[in-house]
């Protein structure tokens, strides 16, 4: 199913997040990831939701989100056209024998080594979904011990504002 990135401006009232989460749960929509953060306006927060579904579902999701009184705006962001990134930390099994191999692969992805241990390496990588997925595929043979993904967030390019 196709992934869609939705960027929302919401009023910073108590219960907004649970209304949004509740909407997805109740109507059976998927949430792949959800991030919330402050904005330049202290009364407003910005939420990025990555969801998957067909066009009809996406249309309903947008309309239902718009119906929530505290939701100010909903915009679909095309990750290929707009600025859209995800922050990921990934812990990979490493030995004296393969550590430098792993690190050299990570350089191709511009991943940073943030922790080096005797048996593991922790990388930090930012990027769009496809890049992160590709990095995971490269690390898989070495053994991925654990990882954390922030979920995507993004902004439109150019002078347009949400």
């Amino acid at each position: 199913m196709k992934k869609h990135v939705l960027s929302l401006l919401v009023e910073n009232n108590s219960g907004v997040l649970s209304r949004i989460a509740g909407l997805f749960a109740r109507r059976g929509y998927n949430i792949d990831s959800l991030t919330v953060g402050i904005t330049e306006n202290t009364k407003v927060s910005r939420i990025t939701i990555v969801t998957s579904g067909d066009e009809k579902t996406l249309e309903q999701i947008k309309k239902q989100l718009n119906k929530i009184i505290d939701v100010i705006k909903v915009l679909e962001i095309d990750p290929d056209k707009e600025v859209c990134r995800e922050l990921v930390f990934i812990k990979v099994k490493a030995t004296d024998g393969n550590r430098s191999d792993i690190i050299s692969i990570s350089k191709l992805f511009r991943a940073n080594v943030v922790d080096v241990g005797r048996e593991s390496l922790v990388f930090e990588i930012t990027g769009i979904y496809s890049k992160v997925e590709a990095f995971f595929r490269m690390m898989e043979p070495y053994g991925i011990l654990e990882f954390v993904r922030s979920g995507a967030t993004g902004l439109q390019r150019g002078k347009n504002l949400l």
Partner: peptide, 8 residues
């Protein structure tokens, strides 16, 4: 009046 009802 409710856009979400259209096409639902």
């Amino acid at each position: 009046i409710d856009p979400a009802e259209i096409g639902k």
